[in-house]
Write a protein that binds this DNA or RNA. Sequence first.
DNA 1: GTGAAAGCGCTAACAT
DNA 2: ATGTTAGCGCTTTCAC
Lengths: 369, 369
Amino acid sequence: MSGHMPQPGKTILVEGGGRIPFIPPITHRIEETMARRKTITIKEVARMAGVSVTTVSNYLNGQMARMSADTREKVGKVIEDLHYQPSSAAQSMRSNSTKIIGVIVGDISNIFSSMLFGGIQKVIKPRNYSLMLLSTGNDPADENLCINKLIRQNVDGLIIQPTQDDPEAFYPIVNAHTPLVIVDGIVKATPKNAAHVISDNTPSSKAMCRELHERGYRRIVTVSETTAPTSSQLPRLEAVRHCTAKLGMEHVMLDVRGHDDAWLAERLRENAGPDAPRTAVFPLMGPLLFRTLTALQAAGLEFPGDLGLVSFDDWNWGRFIGGGVDLLQRDIDEIGRLAGESILQIIEQGHPEQTEISVPTRRIAGHSL
Amino acid sequence: MSGHMPQPGKTILVEGGGRIPFIPPITHRIEETMARRKTITIKEVARMAGVSVTTVSNYLNGQMARMSADTREKVGKVIEDLHYQPSSAAQSMRSNSTKIIGVIVGDISNIFSSMLFGGIQKVIKPRNYSLMLLSTGNDPADENLCINKLIRQNVDGLIIQPTQDDPEAFYPIVNAHTPLVIVDGIVKATPKNAAHVISDNTPSSKAMCRELHERGYRRIVTVSETTAPTSSQLPRLEAVRHCTAKLGMEHVMLDVRGHDDAWLAERLRENAGPDAPRTAVFPLMGPLLFRTLTALQAAGLEFPGDLGLVSFDDWNWGRFIGGGVDLLQRDIDEIGRLAGESILQIIEQGHPEQTEISVPTRRIAGHSL
DNA sequence: GTGAAAGCGCTAACAT
DNA sequence: ATGTTAGCGCTTTCAC
């Protein structure tokens, strides 16, 4: 206890506390700052600076060697004064490069998406690219629309978390010669020169099975929701199926599609009976950990007492739940960074340094097993 | 217990279980599907269909009345065959509309951002707009760059979670006549015809203070991290300051900027001494609840025993922590939807239906007080 | 060192 | 019902 003793009715400021400002009501309205009839073009800038559009264009593209210091200064000043902003549409129409990378994810409300996006942005923003993000709601038809939309935008590259495994879906991308990175989803065919970044689903799941066996578990209940044929839950499921069979364990597979939490609670209760073998529940992705916890709560089941619990991806909340949840944690930010680096490589060198990238999963110890 | 009794070594399929497919290694590589020398243009389509570019343009823009059924079919077929995709750049250059709405947030890794994005997309996607998302890392200079970037993109509208309260920051937007919605951040001046969507920070915080007082708490420790002068934590802080003073309570304000979790743990321990008045900790945003929980854990403090706990925004994890965390929960999706609706109104009618929108916060009962 | 002019792919006003 | 054509704002030869 360091000694200060606050007094009632007085705000104690601990660090940075002097910064509570008065929050004024909004009164002020910003009006137009310049009387402007029409949009300012390069032509206008050229006219005002008394030079040709070529010179202004050179200025914009950093070709300073192609003009005198005098001219450079003049042009710079006019651009400044006019607050001139070159039109990206016109620029990209000529240069055939938009400096935009399109990103298509299955479900933006899955935290996975925002972490992925953050990772991608981390590497591409310093390189002066922007991101256009679309979410398909895991609908293949919408995915196709999104692909075409971004192709029409003439994006310099495309990063997709695919929802369908149909090679035809990629045709528009291939035909447009657009660099492509496929992330997270499992597809059987990828375009030439595309990169594929996924987690080490199979090895990590197998290792977990072995660990559960060693810890004395004899039954694994997977909780999945495989809406897409490309879902990374499928290899995890397959690994558990394969491994449990090999180790002589039972595998109960619960797929929650179309079911509510009550249904899941009932299934879990079934698997926690007194005569059941030692059982661990294994949600195969972050949002399913959430649903599983809800169901466990509803069923009045405790872990690790009634059931063991281990999950993929807790989005960093698991440590506060019970004594901490045992985890297979993916580094989504890293997946995003690798996807971003790959797309830049393809854009700049025509091909990625690696076409198949598998990102390792970390085993985080908890007290739920 | 519904009767099935799994056998070791056998996978029990509960619902949708037959869907584990064989995951093949990637062998197939998609090659180009069409030999194409150059990009297909409207001119090319016109030539192939034996019509003029005007007719093709009319087709693209749904002006079917301006051509015979025969022509329509012919054009449609050629477009189909050639997989023709009109260039958005060229279109927007002429039409002066991009169907793109720019979104600028302070920190994409804050779940707030992805939920906001999801809400916005929910209303604008059906209206055929796309989103371009940029994250500034709460850096005002970068925010300005982002604004200019999107202005150059000629976005049809801009939604900003502002990091700075300088009216000048909005000048480029005003000058470009770009519709603007300000979200979450508190600013003293907004452009004319802009909408401002925020949470009911002050009323909800005050109500919480009164509730804490009624429950017998006599000291509130706020945990804040006010990096931006626009932070919505500031009105919350101000409300707590004002209300505690009025009710004769103590207010200890902890701002974690530049401090680690150990520091926070120590400060919390100070406020949980045996001679301390009854104290509640109040993290002012979701990520701070996370840090506070970490610190409480490190300090070996329990809630509600040692300290009461109530927080803004738990991102739906609070219910699994302890007996459930008491909350002031914002509906971020709703904030996003309102922002999206506002920007569409401004785009289409020139002004929003409401300029100042305050979204209510829900009080969710837990067992942490 | 600087400029004139030809497009990039599309839309829309104005023919026919 | 269909076609001609002038730009939208910019980049890029190619001249001077």
